[in-house]
Amino acid sequence: SSQSQGISSSSTSTMPNSSQSSHSSSGTLSSLETVSTQELYSIPEDQEPEDQEPEEPTPAPWARLWALQDGFANLECVNDNYWFGRDKSCEYCFDEPLLKRTDKYRTYSKKHFRIFREVGPKNSYIAYIEDHSGNGTFVNTELVGKGKRRPLNNNSEIALSLSRNKVFVFFDLTVDDQSVYPKALRDEYIMSKTLGSGACGEVKLAFERKTCKKVAIKIISKRKFAIGSAREADPALNVETEIEILKKLNHPCIIKIKNFFDAEDYYIVLELMEGGELFDKVVGNKRLKEATCKLYFYQMLLAVQYLHENGIIHRDLKPENVLLSSQEEDCLIKITDFGHSKILGETSLMRTLCGTPTYLAPEVLVSVGTAGYNRAVDCWSLGVILFICLSGYPPFSEHRTQVSLKDQITSGKYNFIPEVWAEVSEKALDLVKKLLVVDPKARFTTEEALRHPWLQDEDMKRKFQDLLSEENESTALPQVLAQPSTSRKRPREGEAEGAETTKRPAVCAAVL
Score class of each variant (00 low, 15 high):
I243T: 11
L246G: 01
L246Y: 00
K248P: 00
N250L: 13
P252R: 05
C253R: 05
I254R: 01
K256D: 07
K258L: 08
N259F: 13
F260K: 04
F261C: 08
F261W: 12
A263F: 09
D265P: 15
V269C: 07
E271P: 13
L272E: 09
L272I: 11
L278A: 01
F279D: 02
G284T: 13
K286F: 10
R287N: 15
R287S: 14
R287Q: 10
L288H: 07
L288D: 04
K289P: 09
E290Y: 09
T292P: 12
T292A: 11
T292L: 14
Q299K: 05
M300Y: 02
Y306D: 10
G311A: 11
I312Y: 01
I312Q: 00
I313M: 14
D316I: 01
P319G: 03
V322A: 13
L324P: 03
S325N: 01
S326Y: 12
E328W: 15
E329M: 10
C331H: 13
I333V: 05
K334E: 11
I335N: 03
H340N: 14
S341H: 01
I343D: 12
L344F: 10
E346M: 14
T347I: 13
T347E: 02
L349Q: 15
R351W: 09
R351I: 11
C354T: 00
G355N: 09
T356R: 00
L360G: 14
L360Q: 07
A361N: 00
L365P: 05
V366F: 09
S367V: 10
V368I: 13
V368D: 04
G372A: 08
R375T: 14
A376M: 06
V377W: 02
V377M: 11
V377L: 04
D378E: 09
D378Y: 01
D378Q: 00
S381V: 01
L382W: 04
L382H: 01
L386F: 13
F387L: 01
T401I: 13
Q408K: 07
Q408W: 14
I409W: 04
I409R: 01
V420F: 03
V420C: 01
E423R: 02
L429Q: 03
D430N: 13
D439N: 10
K441M: 13
L450S: 04
P453L: 11
D459E: 11
E470R: 00
E473G: 00
A476F: 09
Q483H: 02
Q483R: 08
T486L: 07
R488L: 05
R488Q: 07
R488A: 04
R492D: 06
E493M: 12
E495Y: 06
A496Q: 11
G498D: 12
E500Y: 11
E500R: 11
T501N: 02
V507S: 10
V507P: 00
C508F: 08
A510E: 05
